Computed example of a mutant assay.
Amino acid sequence: MQCHKRGRDASWCCHPDLEELATRELTAAEREQRAIEAASELGVEYTEQVEQAGQDAWAKIRAHQGSAAA
């Protein structure tokens, strides 16, 4: 179990799966749910056009990360 001190209030957060949650790849359903929630928080309707724009942005990020590592 990993325990991490959080913020100025010095409270502790202990979760048996903390490392796994932080490092695992999200499922397609989890990614879509997070995208829908993020769009909602921004006041944007989550449409196919918004989804495609997000996918295009991630493709550019991955391409940049790949060229930076080379």
Rank of each mutant, 00 (worst) to 15 (best):
A38T: 13
Q49N: 03
Q55V: 05
L42D: 10
A57I: 05
V50A: 11
V44Q: 11
I61P: 00
E41C: 06
A39P: 02
A59T: 10
A59G: 05
E41F: 04
V44G: 01
E37W: 03
Y46R: 04
A28D: 14
E30W: 06
A28Y: 03
E48I: 02
E45K: 12
A22V: 08
R24F: 06
K60Q: 14
R24N: 08
E30T: 04
I36G: 01
W58C: 03
R31C: 08
L21E: 14
Q33S: 12
A29M: 04
E32S: 09
R31A: 11
E51H: 12
W58D: 01
K60S: 07
Y46M: 07
L26V: 07
A22R: 15
A59C: 02
V50L: 10
T47K: 11
G43I: 05
I61C: 07
L42Q: 15
E45Y: 02
A57C: 09
T27Q: 06
A39M: 12
A38K: 15
E48V: 06
A29V: 06
G54L: 15
Q52D: 06
R31F: 04
T23C: 07
L21D: 12
S40K: 15
E51T: 04
V50R: 07
R34F: 07
Q33L: 11
L42H: 11
A28C: 03
L21T: 04
G54H: 04
T47S: 15
E51G: 02
I36M: 12
A35H: 12
R24D: 06
T23A: 00
A35S: 14
L26K: 12
K60M: 07
A57L: 13
T47A: 08
V50K: 03
E37G: 03
A29K: 11
D56K: 10
S40Q: 15
A28G: 05
R34N: 12
L42A: 14
A63M: 00
E41L: 15
W58R: 09
V44D: 02
A63S: 13
A63E: 10
Q55A: 02
V44F: 08
A22K: 14
K60G: 05
I61S: 01
E25P: 11
D56W: 03
I61D: 01
A22L: 15
T47I: 05
L21P: 00
E25T: 13
K60W: 03
S40R: 15
E32N: 11
E25M: 08
E51F: 04
W58A: 10
Y46H: 13
R62G: 00
A57W: 08
L42S: 10
G43V: 11
Y46I: 01
A38I: 08
V50S: 02
S40G: 12
T27Y: 01
E32T: 13
E30C: 07
Y46C: 03
E45H: 08
E37F: 05
D56C: 05
L21R: 15
Q33D: 10
Q55F: 02
W58H: 02
G54W: 07
E45T: 09
A22F: 06
G54Q: 09
Q49V: 10
G43E: 00
I36C: 05
